[in-house]
């Protein structure tokens, strides 16, 4: 049984035919060719597949595409504006918060959602928001610092 769904991905509307059991990440990577979103654990634990659904984080590897029908999806490809990285992405580069890079899209999406909701997030709030994303290269210090550095300061 295939079902036609509509997804708004990074501002563009796409139609796709999917099986009821097709996951969102399969549509993103295989149908739309958006391979920035990575897949790993398949259990909602590691966080590398994190995307935004209507501005809120979701694990795209366990979310069925039919459940995302009609929703607004943002992937890591959708962060940059007119070819320019966001301040958060720049900060990841500046702080060396990227090592192998596999977890990076998930961290970026999680931190982007946090900063949109809490532009003045405190360090404990940042650490708590990132608790569901795993980095296996180096640890979390530089990642937390990178996020903290773009927190809006009271002027």
């Amino acid at each position: 049984m295939s079902i036609e769904i509509t997804l708004e991905v990074n501002g563009r509307t796409h139609r796709a035919r999917v099986e009821p059991t097709t996951t969102l990440i399969e549509v993103l990577r295989e149908t739309l060719g958006l391979t920035g979103t990575n897949k790993d654990c398949g259990m909602g634990i590691c966080g590398v597949c994190t995307v935004l659904v209507n501005g809120r984080t979701a694990s795209s590897c366990i979310l069925l595409a039919v459940q995302a029908d009609g929703e607004r999806i943002t992937t890591v490809e959708g962060l940059e504006q007119d070819g320019h990285l966001t301040p958060l992405q720049e900060s990841f580069l500046r702080f060396g918060a990227v090592q192998c890079g596999y977890c990076t899209p998930g961290f970026l999406m999680t931190a982007t959602a946090l900063l949109a909701e809490k532009p003045r997030a405190t360090r404990p709030e940042i650490v708590d928001a990132l608790r569901g994303n795993i980095c296996r290269c180096t640890g979390y210090k530089k990642i937390v610092e990178a996020v903290e550095s773009v927190v809006a300061r009271p002027s």
């Binding site: 398949g42 590897c61 366990i62 069925l64």
Partner: peptide, 24 residues
Amino acid sequence: VIAGGIALGILMNEKLVSPTWLVD
């Protein structure tokens, strides 16, 4: 029955459940 789809999505990825009918 599928609601938020967290547990079912995990169980399907783990191949512990292969639904023949999903009621969303």
